[in-house]
Each structure stands twice: as C-alpha cells, then as structure tokens.
C-alpha cells in the first residue's frame, strides 16, 4: 500500500512540477510589469473572480455552452446517420464523394457570413454555424469507418442470418465506432472555435463576445482572464470527451493493447 501511494505521489510530482514552474515564472516575470498588454499574473487572477461572477456566468458562459452542446449534438446525430447511409451504399458514396470532399475542405469559419444571411445574428445562427462546421468530420469519418468493416465480420453476420437492423446495431456501428470517435474529437475542437467566432462576429452575449468586448474597451486583465477561462473550458471539454471515449471504446483500447503485447 505504501509503495502504491509513493508511486502515485511521484507521478503527481512529475505532472505538476513543470506547470508549477511555468506559472511561477509567469508570476515573477510579470509581477512588476507596467505594460498594459501583459499585466501581472497577480492582477489577472485577482480580476478572474469578480469578472466571471454569477451574472456573467449565466449571461455569457452558460449560453455559449448551451449553443455548443446543441450544435454539437445535432451534428453528431446527423453526421453519424448520414455517414451510415452514405457508407453503406457504394453507388451513393461514389456519387457524393467529390462534393463531400469539397464541403469538408471549406474552412468552417467562412460559414458564418453565409449563415448570417439566412438566420440573422440570433441563437439559431450560432447553432447552425456550430452544427454545420462539426458535421463534416463526423460524417466523413463515419463513412470511412463503415467502409472499413472487416470482411470476415460481415460474412459472419450474413452466415448467421442477422437481419439488417441487427447488423447495423451489433456490427456496423460498433465496428465503425473508433473512427466515429476520431471524427467526434475533431468536431469538438471545431465546435469550440465556431462557438467563439460566431460570438465575436455578431452577438450581444457569450464567451467570445465578452472577450472581444474586453479587448475593445482595453480591459486587459479581464481579457486575459477570459482567455484563461476559454483555455480552461477547452481543457475540461477535452477531458470529458476522453472520459466518454475511454468508456465507450474500452474494448478497442483493450484489443489494441492485447495486439501490441503479442
């Protein structure tokens, strides 16, 4: 028990030393800074609490997160559904491939001006922007995953006469899931980018709006605290994603580990 504790402690030390050093360095270097662009870390941290109090949390952070969640989930469902459809039909896939490649290659932020034309600058616009940017990585990765389902697995399902719905549920979806998750991960970072950008473009609230607002009104410590918050948000969402992925793909990681060991 003592040895386990020690190992954990050592690992924690390894993990925390560099971040602690970096933060200390930032603190010391910036401490007597008089530059308005890089205020002392002390000041930034002091403004963090008051800046992101309950009011801003409900007014800016929560709406941002709601838009992101809704747009992301919409894209995930649509992307997986359409991806299954396209992936399972060779003719359809061959027909749509060039168009899909083009749509995927569009840098997602350029969707903002187009969608603003249709949907104005309200929540709908932001939701559509996020969803339409997240859609392509999910869709194309699902298509790839479906296409790559192992031939022997397919023949097994056929020889045991699994009907189409069972094949979809017990074979195609799980077999494609590692690839689908790769798409969902790409989509998550695109979704965060689009959440911020759509709010920077035209909005009256949201995290992106708040940060740009601080910058324009030269509230620099507040701006820095916003950058920190956004960074923290990216980190937390990525951790959450990893948690879900580890659970959902436990079999896949086990399989890979067992292959590597042999």
């Amino acid at each position: 028990m003592g040895r386990v504790m020690r190992r954990i402690l050592v690992n924690v030390m390894w993990a925390l030393t560099l971040p602690a050093l970096l933060i200390a360095a930032w603190w010391l270097v910036s401490d007597d800074s008089t530059s308005i662009y890089s205020p002392p870390l002390r000041t930034i941290l002091r403004t963090f609490g008051p800046t992101w109090d309950g009011d801003r949390l409900t007014h800016d952070v929560v709406p941002s997160l709601l838009r992101l969640t809704a747009g992301y989930l919409l894209a995930a469902v649509a992307g997986i559904g359409l991806g299954l459809l396209v992936g399972l039909h060779a003719q359809l896939r061959a027909t749509l491939e060039p168009v899909l490649e083009f749509l995927r290659a569009l840098p997602p932020p350029v969707l903002v001006p187009i969608i603003m034309l249709f949907a104005g600058i309200g929540d709908t616009m932001k939701l559509i922007v996020i969803a339409s940017g997240c859609l392509w990585p999910v869709l194309l990765n699902t298509v790839e995953g479906v296409r790559a389902v192992d031939q022997v697995m397919i023949e097994t399902a056929r020889s045991y006469r699994l009907p189409a719905p069972a094949r979809l549920r017990h074979l195609v979806l799980p077999a494609a899931s590692p690839q689908i998750f790769a798409g969902l991960r790409q989509a998550l970072s695109i979704g965060i980018i689009l959440m911020v950008i759509s709010e920077m473009f035209a909005a009256s609230n949201g995290l992106g709006f708040a940060i740009v607002d601080f910058q324009r009104s030269f509230a620099i410590p507040e701006m820095w605290s916003g950058i920190l918050l956004l960074g923290l948000l990216g980190f937390v969402l990525s951790m959450l994603f990893q948690l879900v992925e580890r659970r959902a793909l436990a079999w896949y990681h086990g399989l890979r580990a067992s292959r590597r060991a042999s």
Binding site: V152, P163, A166, H170, W251
Partner: peptide, 26 residues
Amino acid sequence: LVFQEYGRSLYPWLRVRDNVELPLRQ
C-alpha cells in the same frame, strides 16, 4: 460456419457470452 480467422469472426466489442448469444437473439 466456423471461420479460420477466429480473431475477426468474433466481435471484439462483445463479451464471450454476447458473441454466442447474438445469433440466437435474432
């Protein structure tokens, strides 16, 4: 049919019991 490639014929996301049960559930 029992395939030569057992590693690819059993579904790695299903436990042993579920692999055996899957055809029966249909």
